[in-house]
Computed example of a mutant assay.
Amino acid sequence: MSRRPRVPSFPAASRIPRWLALLLTAALFSQPLAAGEAFDWLDRMSAAIHDLNYRGTFVYQHNGKLEAMYIVHRGGEDSRQRLFALSGAAREVVRDQEGVTCILSDSKAVMVDRSLPRGPFAALPRDLEQLNRYYRFSLGGTDRVLERHSRVVVVEPRDDYRYGYRFWLDREHALPLRSALVTAAGRPLEQMMFTQLEVLEQVDDAALRPELGGEHFTRFEGPGPDTEEEVPAAAGSDWEFTWLPAGFELRGHNWHGMPVSGQRVEHWVYGDGLATVSVYIETYDETSPPGLQGLSNMGAVNAMGRTLDGHHVTVVGEVPAETVERLAMGVRRND
């Protein structure tokens, strides 16, 4: 992994009007039902994203920018996906079971990452009900996108330490025709919307081969299985985290070398099933390249860096700034 920017009571009343009591009672009984229906739609969405064959173009708004992308996806056991930028510098991203390959025409670079970062759609856990303590799930009505009828699914965080989602799901296939990543207050941070979409019977190999690349491109390999040393769950560490958001559990812990310097960095991944944060700790002295100090932001991604006891700590994730700041300031060396 590369070094990060060194680069979420009603007042008591003796009498309640009968109509209000009936309304409140209906709301109490309808919430679990609405959540269950929302789970059904999200389960269908996850299956559609993985299993269906499709191609189309979509616009992606993030960090004050608007990009147009072409996507072709082959579903099933041999799932494979190719993204091609239709605006700005020519770029391609190919995802398969081995990882992700990014081809950048402006820098003549091919970057290979075996860690399988997320694609353009939110990755949802299989057991959505486990998230009920940290998010509210509901249906938000109907809409039309691409002249297709869609069902809106709303995912709202129960605190300010994680983001929420809105999904406009195609009624026929449950593919996300539009989606938005939003703050706890509902402000959009990132949005995606298809401008053209076609569900296919099959996708040929030729449609998934990258068009960019060649002998003048330089290949960079990110950390892979051979360069990562997984830390056993029972193994100790020199570091502890005195604060984590409710529901965030350890998802991964390993040591690996930095791609350029080869310096060893200890890496933790924490998440609640939707949101994730990564923590990197490495040795740091006056000869080290300057590291991130304080908060940094790029769209929905926030990062926090600090030095501590001869080490540099970086916390980064698609979570609010307060989350990475509190987590970074809560890192302590074990006694």
Rank of each mutant, 00 (worst) to 15 (best):
S87C: 08
L146D: 02
S107D: 01
Y135H: 04
G310S: 10
G36S: 07
L327A: 08
G299S: 08
R91K: 14
Q293N: 12
G56I: 09
M192P: 04
R264K: 15
I71K: 00
S237I: 14
A27V: 13
V93T: 11
T227S: 13
R44Y: 02
T183Y: 03
T101F: 03
K108P: 06
V265K: 03
S150C: 14
L42G: 00
F58P: 02
P176V: 11
V155K: 05
L128G: 00
V231Q: 05
E92W: 03
V277K: 00
H312W: 03
P11W: 07
T57L: 08
F220N: 07
L28S: 12
Y54C: 12
A174P: 00
D335G: 13
G310K: 09
E229C: 13
E98V: 15
V313G: 04
P289V: 12
R3T: 11
G56S: 08
K108F: 02
D159F: 13
V319W: 02
V313F: 04
Y284T: 14
Y60I: 12
D40V: 10
D96G: 09
E228P: 05
D106W: 04
R118Q: 10
L292R: 01
V316A: 00
T218K: 08
Q31V: 15
T276C: 13
G36D: 01
T287D: 02
R133W: 06
E318N: 06
S14A: 13
V231E: 02
P120S: 03
F29L: 12
P232T: 11
D226N: 06
V7G: 07
V93A: 09
T287E: 05
S105W: 02
L83C: 06
P17Q: 14
G310H: 07
D43V: 11
R326Q: 13
P289M: 14
E201F: 10
H62A: 15
L327K: 05
L292A: 03
D159R: 11
R18Q: 11
D238E: 15
R166F: 06
M298V: 14
E37C: 09
Q97N: 07
L295G: 01
V301T: 13
